[in-house]
Design a protein around this nucleic acid. Sequence first.
RNA 1: GGAGCGGUGACCGAGUGGUUGAAGGUGCACGCCUGGAAAGCGUGUGUGCGGCAACGUACCGAGGGUUCGAAUCCCUCUCGCUCCGCCA
Length: 430
Amino acid sequence: MLNQKDLFDKPETIHEGLRKRGVSKGELERLTKLATQRRSAISDLDNLRHELNQASQLMQEKARAGEQDAVEAGRQELKSLKTSIKEKDEALNKTEAQLNQMLLELPNIPHASVPEGQDESQNREERLVGELPSFSFKPKPHWEIGEELGILNFEQAAKISGARFVVYRGAGAKLERALINFMLDTAAENGYHEIIPPLLVRAHAMEGSGQYPKFVGESFETLDREYALIPTSEVPLVNLHRDEIIEADNLPIRYTAFTPCFRREAGAAGKDTRGLIRQHQFNKVELVAFTQPENAEAELERLTGNAESILQKLGLPYRVVSLCTGDLGFAAAKTYDLEVWMSGQDTYREISSCSLCGDFQARRAKIRFRRHPEGGKKAKPELIHTLNGSALAVGRTLIAVLENGQQEDGSVVLPEALVPYFGAKTIAPA
RNA sequence: GGAGCGGUGACCGAGUGGUUGAAGGUGCACGCCUGGAAAGCGUGUGUGCGGCAACGUACCGAGGGUUCGAAUCCCUCUCGCUCCGCCA
C-alpha cells in the first residue's frame, strides 16, 4: 500500500511511478481528489469536536455549580452540534473507505533502477551463469523423461484432481524430497530461520502481503470462505510479525519455509498445459527477510545470491533478469527473476522470483521497527522493509535436473550435491 | 458442536460514566552511585491523523447505540483462552 502523505509530499514520484505501472490519469485524479477531500474533512471535524469538547467541560462545571437551567439549555444546543458532527463523520468515513479501497488496489512504486517496459520482452538480462549442456541426441522434455522412468504420472493425477496436477512416484517422490531438504539446508547455512507455517490463512493475512483484495479470484478458498490456501509461503511468513514493533537490534530477520503452494492459475488457460511447469499445487522453498530501509537493497542482492547459490551447487545454468515495470508483481518495487535452462524445452524458464517490496507490505500488515535510542531520545517506530524470493520452486528444479541430466539410454545423472540427499547418483529406467 | 471467560500502551497489568491518554510494574534511554558492572536511586518514555509550528483531534479488539460527556452502560460482530464432546 502507498503512503497517503506521499501524494502530497512528493506527488511527481507517485504519479510517475504509478503511470509506469499502467495506472490511468483518471484514476490518479480520483485518488488525489479523495485524499484532498479527506484532509479537509478531518480538519473541519477536528474543529467541531474541539468545540464540543470545550462545551462539555463547561457543562460539567455548570452541573457542579448546580446551575440546572444553564445545563438544560446547553443540552439542546449541543445536541444539534453533535448531529452535525455525526453527519460529517459519516461523510468522512465514506471518503476514507473509497480511498482505502483504491490504495489497497494500487501496485507498488517501481524502484528507480527498474527498466521501464510493457511486458517481459523488455526485461533486462543482468547475467548469464553456467554452461549450457550439450547432447549427442535430441533431449526430451521432462514429461516424457518422467513418464518413461515411471516417476511422474499426469494421468493418475488427472483421475483424482483433473488438469494441472501431478503424481510423483518412487524415485520422483524421493527426488522432490531430496531437493526440498537440500534447499532448506542451504537456506539454514545462509542464516535463514526455518519455519513450518499454516497453509490455510485468513483474509487479513492475504491482504497484508498484497494478494487481497485485488487477486481474490486467483486463490483457492474453503467453502465457507473462512480460509484461503496459501499461494506462496510468503503470505504466512510476512504476516508472522503483523502488528508488531520490532527492536532494530533484532534486524535483519530472515526466514525460510518449505510449503506446498496453491494457485488457480486463472487466466493461464492453454498456457503450459504439458508437464509440471504450471500446476495448481506445487512445492516451494521460500526466503523472506525483514530489514531496515537503508539495508533493503543490499538484502535483495544477498537474497538473490542465496537463491542463485542453489542453482550453482546443482550445476544448473541460469540467467538473472531484472523485471521491467510492466512485468513487476503487484507488491514488488524491484524483482530479479532467476531463469533456469531447460534442455528438453530448449529455453530458460522462471524458477525463482526475488523481490524487494519496500514498505508496501509493512504498511498493510503494520510491521514496524524501532531504531536504537540516541541521545536519550526514544526513536519513533518506522515501517520495516520486506523482501522475498523462491529458493527455489522445487518442481521446476526437478524438471531442470531431469532435462539437463538426461542420458541417451533414458536414465538421468543427478548433480553431485544431491547425491547425499537422494542416496544414488542416477535414476535408471525400471 | 456445547458451556464459560476474556481482548487496555513495546510488554505485563489497574481502571468508580466527567480533571484518564489512561495508575502501577517490566523493558528501554539519560543521570547519580561504582575502579568497572550489577543492584539501588532519580528523571524521561504511546500511536495515528491534521498543522511549518504552537497546538488540535482520534484511538483502551471492530462497528453501532444511550448520554451534553463512554475504556467505563447496552447491542452486534470478530479474535483469543479454558472446560466438555469429537478427532490425527
